[in-house]
């Protein structure tokens, strides 16, 4: 006797309703499954660059692979950031990697430390000031000790975390939520965020730019998205030296 298989309702058009930053505001934002899949596809080469090996083609049952350790990505984020964080889960799967999750909050920072200690991730993405402050002020942890156990890269999402980890001797990377997408530095600490020009276009809002050409960065989707971005104010300032690269204002 078996229990009948559950048949689900057809999935909704909008995969989820999250939120993004537009200028100084936070606004609800709907994405589709296709949007999520495309964001994940764009993240795959980024994760490889950060240190997640592509093991998707490895035959784990083949002789000699008994001791293989799958790469692991620790995603540190809040549920409200799901539009940005969920594609990381999918991208990890594409690479044959495992992923784990912790909240990017002061209180839950103990979880990031515990999971790093237990699971030895290759990459940790999403460390912010709240996590850094929680670890040091609430739990008395040493940042070098906690993040030194990460075998690949530690990626920060704000300047406070970047500065704290740098001071602790870690070579962190920067990433930023830019509208509904996520951009990464091309090298740790370079300040140059990269994006795929086939998917997104970024321009400086000339009306708000200073004499050096630094101004508000506006985002437009090139690839199709459920909710279009048309010269969306990303809330970031910088300039665009060439398509595919942003230099953030310091």
């Amino acid at each position: 006797m078996t229990v009948p298989q559950t048949i689900y309702e057809p999935p909704p058009v909008a995969w989820g309703l999250g939120r993004i930053r537009v200028g100084d505001d936070v606004v609800p934002w709907a994405v589709s499954q296709a949007d999520v899949d495309d964001e994940a596809a764009a993240l795959v080469p980024v994760l490889v660059r950060l240190g997640i090996d592509d093991t998707s083609g490895v035959d784990s049952s083949a002789p000699g692979n008994e001791d293989e350790v799958r790469p692991l990505l620790l995603i540190v984020s809040m549920l409200s950031e799901t539009l940005h964080s969920y594609p990381f889960e999918t991208a990890a799967g594409t690479l044959g990697a495992l992923y784990s999750s912790a909240d990017s909050s002061r209180f839950d920072s103990f979880r990031s430390a515990a999971l790093i200690g237990y699971l030895h991730p290759q990459v940790v993405w999403g460390v912010n000031s709240a996590v850094v402050e929680g670890l040091t002020e609430e739990f008395g942890r040493d940042l070098a000790e906690v993040f030194g156990a990460v075998t690949g890269s530690v990626v920060t999402t704000d300047e406070g975390a970047f500065a704290a980890l740098t001071a602790a001797g870690i070579r962190p990377w920067r990433s930023r939520a830019v509208g509904p997408t996520t951009m990464f530095e091309d090298a740790p600490g370079s300040g140059r965020l990269t994006y795929d020009p086939a998917r997104w276009a970024v321009e400086v809002d000339a009306a708000g730019a200073d004499a050096s050409g630094v101004g508000p960065l506006l985002l437009t989707n090139v690839a199709a998205r459920l909710t279009p971005s048309t010269r969306l104010d990303s809330g970031l300032r910088g300039h665009v030296p060439e398509p595919g690269t942003i230099l953030l204002a310091r």
Binding site: S56, V58, S60, N65, E68, V69, R70, L72, E89, A92, G93, G96, L98, Y99, S100, S101, A102, F110, R111, A114, L115, L119
Partner: peptide
């Protein structure tokens, strides 16, 4: 842990 497909993530209890 190296088995792909059925095993993709490691979550955790609340603590």
């Amino acid at each position: 842990p190296r088995t792909r497909g059925v095993f993709s993530a490691i979550f955790s209890t609340s603590g």
